[in-house]
Design a protein around this nucleic acid. Structure first.
Lengths: 167, 167
DNA sequence: TATGAAAACCTAAACAA
DNA sequence: TTGTTTAGGTTTTCATA
């Protein structure tokens, strides 16, 4: 029979529960979310820890899903996607929302969220030029049950980062 | 007198100009934007390149700003930020927009863009709970010249990634 | 309060890029 | 050489008995 501790851990591992993190974990996450290319020795210096101790923490944070991945941040303009926009799509009902969600593999779509309200979907899209947006909007509006779209063209980006792990 | 190639390069290096990228670069960027922890040997295998050749390309892509950074992707829920929302802020004029932009260091704010239309700002925010959003909206609405806000609470996230470097 | 399990840390050493 | 990873051993923490 599993003891109490094991049961508690099992419950804690339920999807989307916050992880148990101390101040050092949060500081480490902050450092890694800014630059994950630092060596463990360097991180250890900032955290007053040895390199293997940092390594252990990183391993645990990855195992627990707090760190989902380490990725390269690409400059959209440099790869030819110069126009950023948010598109709010109104759908008639849940069925049409599901049809819309099948567009998830389009390379222009960077984010896709369902939002509360009138069966809506929020998209963050990055396209080559205005024509790219026009084409994309066409694909969206062709979907049965899509009532309409409202686009917000981005002029300047002032902040673009991940979740702040600070308490 | 500088030759044609030098002139072209100088012009190309202007801010926000697309970089010159071949198909291998784009494939490499695709791999790195999914997982930057792969070894050069592994990447080389997928690209039919030697490890040092991959290393050279990565170095160039970083130098040219195509790769802006390599960062750890943090799970917002796991660090206690369970509520994601987009907030569209209407401001009276450019001066009030600038005042709003001074909130850029708030930890709840993940993205901040000015958008075309009626002097608007689009925010992507991640907060602890609904009260966190209420508090944040309070701070925004306290700013002189802020007409109003419209919030889109995210129910589910289906796609959340960086720019697709494919052509 | 006592105690055993688990976690966190360090040094040292092996290993890989 | 530098950086990553494993191993071994000590201390701390913490949930129970």
């Amino acid at each position: 029979m599993p003891n109490k501790t094991e049961e508690t851990n099992a419950v804690k591992q339920v999807r989307h529960q916050p992880a148990r993190l101390d101040d050092v974990d949060r500081k480490l996450l902050g450092l890694l979310s800014a630059d994950s290319a630092q060596s463990y020795a360097e991180l250890g210096e900032r955290l007053h820890l040895s390199a293997p101790a940092v390594h252990d923490r990183v391993k645990r944070l990855k195992r627990d899903g707090v760190i989902r991945a380490t990725v390269a941040k690409i400059d959209g303009c440099k790869v030819g996607r110069t126009l950023l926009a948010f598109v709010l799509v109104n759908t008639k009902n849940v069925v049409s929302t599901k049809r819309l969600l099948t567009l998830n593999n389009l390379p222009e779509i960077e984010e896709m969220h369902t939002v509360a309200g009138d069966s809506g979907v929020m998209l963050k899209v990055r396209v080559r030029e205005t024509e790219g947006l026009e084409e994309l909007l066409g694909k969206i509006q062709d979907i049965e049950g899509v009532d309409g779209t409202r686009s917000y063209i981005v002029l300047s980006t002032f902040v673009e980062r991940g979740p702040d792990p600070a308490l």
